[in-house]
Design a protein around this nucleic acid. Structure first.
Length: 929
DNA sequence: GAGTTCACG
DNA sequence: GACGTACGTGAACTCA
């Protein structure tokens, strides 16, 4: 029955082109199995449309596309969108497919020659509002934000967030009606809207808020206090008015259809499933068939004999059966199934995220998608059942020891793969219960090897992305904040679906990822650089490092005293009491009250008061220097001397960090809770904190670190003969660089010249820019650029490396380390400031990543190499390994560890430049480093 | 929870 | 003086 659009109706307008573009860049490059046709964006698009089939608030719906490249905006301004880059090769064939998809879903698909989708959307949104209905614009494009308000909102489908008036204000600093004014001033590099030079969104919002509107502002431009800004606005008034016309959406587009034509219609199952079948979207076909209650059409056989196995058909999550195991016979049956399969997905539930303190609460297992169980072990009785709930275990649980006795042989069985998501966690928990899990697979690491740089690798992310399923949030089970409970307090019936689902998801992800390793050529990376690291890191983390609480405590007290003194002096100098730790208040004191030179900046409009700014200001006044001293002490106290004491494990008396293997995109590890990779060393006061990291009685700390590993690797990548020679001859590399660049003989080198060369060497590793080097060296930008030009002239290989790496990234969407690790660079073809970031990251990633690979290889080999020495590897700090060794065996350890580290690249790689390792030893880390 | 600052390689 | 910039991280703090 047709209803006329009006009150109670809800129109959803999907910005088609924007969605596919974003889906294309956000999703992995999925191809149709039978012929390799790229269909990733189409699949993302269909996933989104599928939600409309299953039902939501929409009563009317349309997908709006752009049509034609010439619009009225080109008549106004011939440079409009002139810098748009070509559509990516793989996206082009997907555009017509998304139109077909829209039709197959029986959703209105609208476009009008000579009009941008945004204008059609504006017109429809206006009509919907005037008719008294609601409108949701499915897009995150900021150009559409001017339409928000009065029943119109926006939905970012990929982030699943709603953008309302508040959202627009947060983004633009002004309400939706004034967004065009801000955009007119700020301009837009993506669409090539000129705006006012030197004015960004923040400044624009400031001005509009002050003057009320753009017209008012331009009329009263003389009143702007800042001379430069005033002149800009006066000089560019014409251009700004033009920009305003360009960004203002036309809500009077002539339409050849009405709102009523957009009423939501049921799809024809045959047409829809036919299309999806043609695209070979198995999961969506299955889901929609189930939803429509029809039989899923057969899929073509896309896996002929001999071909690499591809995706596996998996049942829908709604059909999954998850059971609680409370009977030994049932457990036996599960174990029998595991033996039959040869693999099992495992997940442990515990009382804490801290693996060194967490107690096992239950274990879940999955052997095939949709079939998983949860074995509750130590859930507590609920308080409703028992006033003395503290003590008793809930009913219906098998005994922990008995279950572990049964499972241990399975978990340690060489013939059975144990699959986990972030298995290092479960490995450590089970190790504390006497079980050494092996052999292992980890879906987090599979995703990292396959997709580093594309997205994070947590279970929720992966499940949503690759299984189109949102797992039960842990918050729903244990709550949040103060009322959060530990998992052993969760009623068993509530724990089962959550815990079993995790194992199910893990198994399904494994089935998705594992077959991709080979085609994506990352099998070796996964098998030699990722997976073997799990037990190595687990043992290091469990070993921990001894920290002397008394030393830290003394330092904390001393810092507190000195800070109080400084605070008093600071207040005196400021002439008032304020929070020294508040950058906001400090900024107001320095720049508003004391009128020191320096200005507002940053996204929030707050004054920047970073160390570099305060250092510059220190010549003007005593206060900034005191604040710097105070800040240093505050940092040392709160982050180190205080916090580290809280991290001393009461049982072991040591500090146990946790390493994330997939934390950094480049292959580096990251250390958390606490971070032991950023213990101070650069200043004398800070370095003393390392005196608290000690060797126990009868032992010594030994530290070995790679010397200039990244520069050596860069030299290898770039093939720079002069640098190769300098490294081979064991020269001071920065001095050699300086000598080569500035034609100063080595024996006449001055510290200042060497310092500059050193800054350039580092800059090169970071994807140097004139701006960055100028800031670092505090010299004019032109001079810095001159240095860079000269550097490239002397070392042309470096320039080539940079160009080749950037080109490779643009072509392939990733860069690679010398060991084959892939780091994806999805933003490399972006426009605007993002492009610079992406380019520098792409240049840096192979260098940083290769160094990370080298030390990973060393760590993996280390245990066997030092097996006969009474020593343990404790910490890794990117290019350094810290060991604890029994006294008398220091030299043996250093010799063995050095051999492993210096030869870590072999045998797969020959290096023109040798790797070199420095060693130190002592009673504490300060002495050893 | 975002933004700022600062500790490390 | 600023369209924003050295690469990669994690933690503590302030403030909305």
């Amino acid at each position: 029955m047709a209803i006329s659009f009006g009150k109670g109706c809800h129109l959803h307008l999907i910005d088609g082109s924007a969605f596919i573009f974003r889906a294309f860049h956000a999703l992995p490059p999925l191809t149709r199995k039978s012929d390799g046709l790229p269909v990733g964006a189409v699949s993302g698009f269909c996933n989104m449309l599928q939600k409309y089939i299953e039902g939501n608030s929409a009563t009317h719906i349309a997908v709006i596309f752009d049509k034609g490249s010439h619009t009225f905006r080109n008549d106004l301004y011939d440079q409009y969108k002139a810098n748009r880059s070509e559509m990516p090769e793989d996206l082009r064939p997907q555009i017509p497919l998304t139109r077909r998809a829209t039709e197959a879903f029986n959703i209105a698909c609208k476009e009008i020659e000579g009009y941008e989708a945004d204008d059609i959307i504006a017109t429809l949104a206006r009509q919907a509002r005037e008719a008294g209905g609601q409108c949701t614009i499915v897009s995150s494009d900021k150009d559409l934000m001017q339409l928000v308000g009065d029943g119109v909102d926006m939905l970012d489908q990929m982030k699943n967030t709603v953008i309302d008036r508040e959202g627009v204000e947060a983004k633009f600093g002004v309400p939706p009606e004034k967004v065009v004014d801000v955009q007119a001033l700020a301009g837009d590099s993506v669409d090539n809207i000129p705006g006012a030079p030197g004015i960004g969104i923040k400044t624009a919002a400031l001005l509009i808020n002050e003057f009320g509107s753009l017209d008012e502002l331009l009329e009263r431009a003389e009143e702007i206090p800042q001379p430069k800004r005033r002149q800009t606005l006066i000089d560019h008034a014409e251009q700004i008015r033009l920009s305003q016309k360009l960004v203002t959406l036309d809500d009077q587009t002539p339409l050849d259809f009405t709102l009523d034509d957009l009423e939501k219609r049921d799809p024809n199952p045959e047409t829809l499933l036919g299309f999806l079948q043609e695209m070979e979207f198995r999961t969506i076909v299955k889901r929609i068939s189930d939803y429509l209650g029809v039989e899923a059409p057969a899929m073509p056989d896309t896996n002929p004999a001999g071909a690499e196995p591809t995706a596996v058909e998996q049942p829908d999550f709604t059909e999954a059966t998850y059971e609680a195991v409370s009977d030994m016979a049932v457990l036996d049956a599960w174990i029998a199934r595991i033996h039959e399969r040869g693999y099992v997905a495992v997940d442990t539930e515990t009382t804490s995220l801290n693996e060194m303190q967490a107690e096992l609460v239950g274990i879940s297992l999955a052997v095939e998608p949709g079939h998983a169980c949860y074995i509750p072990l130590t859930h507590k009785k609920s308080e409703a059942d028992d006033l003395f709930a503290e003590e008793g275990l809930a009913e219906g649980q098998l005994e922990l020891e008995a279950v572990l006795e049964k499972l241990k042989p399975v978990l340690e069985d060489d013939a059975i793969l144990k699959i986990g998501q972030n298995l290092k966690y479960d490995w450590k928990i089970l190790a504390r219960y006497g079980v050494t899990v092996a052999p292992i697979e980890d879906t987090l690491l599979l995703s990292y090897a396959l997709n580093a740089g594309l997205h994070q690798h947590g279970m929720d992310t992966l499940s949503e992305r690759y299984l189109a399923h949102n797992p039960i949030p842990i918050k729903e089970i244990i709550g949040t904040g103060k009322s959060q409970i530990t998992f052993d307090r969760v009623p068993i019936d509530k724990a089962v679906p959550y815990a079993a689902e995790d194992a199910d998801i893990t198994l399904r992800l494994w089935q998705v990822f594992k077959p991709q390793l080979h085609p994506k050529q990352v099998t070796t990376v996964y098998e030699t650089l990722e997976r073997p690291l799990i037990p190595v890191l687990a043992r290091m983390e469990m070993a921990g490092v001894e920290v002397d609480r008394a030393v830290l405590h003394r330092m904390s007290s001393a810092f507190a005293q000195k800070m109080a003194q400084l605070e008093e002096e600071i207040h005196e100098l400021a002439g008032e009491n304020f929070k020294v730790g508040s950058p906001k208040q400090l900024g107001e004191i320095l720049f508003d009250k004391m009128n020191l030179p320096g200005g507002k900046k940053g996204k929030t409009g707050a004054y920047a008061t970073g160390a570099d700014i305060l250092e510059d200001l220190a010549t003007e006044h005593d206060l900034p220097g005191r604040v710097l001293d105070w800040r240093q002490l505050s940092k040392l106290k709160s982050t180190y001397t205080d916090a580290l004491q809280d991290h001393i494990n009461p049982e072991t008396g040591r500090v146990h960090t946790s390493y994330s293997i997939a934390g950094a995109n480049t292959g580096r590890l990251a250390s958390t809770d606490p971070n032991l990779q950023n213990i101070p060393v650069r200043t004398e006061e800070g370095r003393r904190i390392r005196e608290a990291f000690v060797a126990p009685e009868g032992k010594t700390l030994v530290s070995l670190d790679y010397s200039q590993i990244e520069l050596r690797i860069l030299t290898q990548f770039a093939d720079v003969p002069a640098l190769e020679r300098a490294f081979r001859d064991g020269e001071d590399i920065h001095a050699s660089t300086a000598s080569e660049m500035f034609d100063v003989p080595l024996d006449e080198m001055t510290p200042e010249v060497r310092r500059r060369a050193k800054a350039i060497n580092f800059g090169v590793i970071y994807g140097i820019s004139g701006f960055g080097l100028a800031r670092n060296l505090r010299i004019p930008r032109e001079e810095a650029q001159g240095f860079i030009d000269r550097y490239f002239e002397r070392f042309p290989g470096i320039k080539d490396y940079m160009t080749e790496t950037t080109d490779f990234a643009k072509k392939n969407g990733y860069v690679q380390t010398l060991f084959g690790r892939k780091i994806h660079t999805p933003e490399i073809n972006a426009k605007g400031p993002t492009a610079g970031f992406a380019r520098r990251a792409a240049i840096n990633a192979p260098i940083q990543g290769t160094a990370a690979d080298v030390i990973r290889r060393a760590m993996i080999r280390m245990e066997a190499a030092i097996a006969d020495i009474p020593a343990k590897m404790l910490l890794q700090v990117h290019d350094e390994l810290l060991f604890e060794v029994e006294e008398g065996h220091e030299d043996a350890l250093i010799a063995a560890a050095r051999e492993v580290m210096e030869g870590a690249h072999k045998p797969v790689l020959d290096l023109e430049v040798p790797l070199s390792v420095d060693a130190g030893q002592g009673r504490n880390w300060a002495e050893a480093h």
